[in-house]
Amino acid sequence: MSDLFSLTVLLGILGTGIRLATPYLYAAIGETFSQRSGVLNLGVEGIMLMGALSGFYMGVTTGNLWIGLLAAAFVGLLMGLMMAFVSVTLQATQGISGIGLHLFGLGLSTLLFKTMLQGRVESISGFQPIRIPLLADIPYLGEVLFNHNIMVYFAFLLVPVANFVLNKTTFGLSVRAVGQNPESADSLGVNVNLVRYTTVSIGGILAGIAGASLSLALINLFQENMTSGIGFIAVALVYFGGWRPWGVLAGALLFSMVNALQLWIQVLGIQIPSDIAVMMPYILTILALAFAVNRTRAPAALTKAFNRGEN
């Protein structure tokens, strides 16, 4: 009975882990862009909530999930621009304005949920699983890896795309330069503020989509404060991943797999108090952060506002 290493369990962990990792991937990859350019956006959680709500609302009212997704991305963009305005143009302390943005998103999404949806929890028929022919026929693994909804595939495809954009394009070079040394970038003709506006907006759009991945694809409903901490873990995953998309992927998968593992440990009746089991993913993340993060360096200008006139 309590055989943790049976095929069912291992495949189960993999499948659940992949689904759990999806919102973290969108949010953390978006945050990677933002932080690589030097802006720490702690408001991801609030943007996710607004994305989840607006995506769900538009999905329900129009009956078209793609319009919902678009709405979530648009609302994410608006909130990203808000963060950029406050932290880049007004040069407010990033930590404080990010927490402000989170509370703003939490409050506003709850308020709109009460008014626009009358606070009723109702489910929607979300994005359905798409079986990828041939690949899904691979014994055992095929079903677990290649039978997910489109939002899951997009999340994983986002990793190589983000990696390419950051490391192989001129835009990516500007982003890294601005995050490392905005003064030099500026002297070389890079528009520091424009780059930061762009990255924080990308972060906002992806955080909005992260929220919609919950309300339109994975859980298919909206409830107040439904993200319950995912956005903050996503910020931690950026540090964990050393500000690199592949590192973020590794972190998101590790965290989600351990979460899936602890659920299986409970299902199998292995005698560990549930409180300890629930803590496992967090403890592991803290340990990994403590040991791994020293090997990579944060963008030198992270959290530092750029002021052309003063330099």
Binding site: A92, L106, L111
Partner: peptide, 19 residues
């Protein structure tokens, strides 16, 4: 700069508190 941040935070508190 600090005032702007605090103001923003207060605005957020206000919205989240009344919701």
């Amino acid at each position: 700069v600090f005032q702007v941040g605090v103001l923003f935070l207060l605005l957020a508190f206000f919205v989240s508190a009344c919701a």
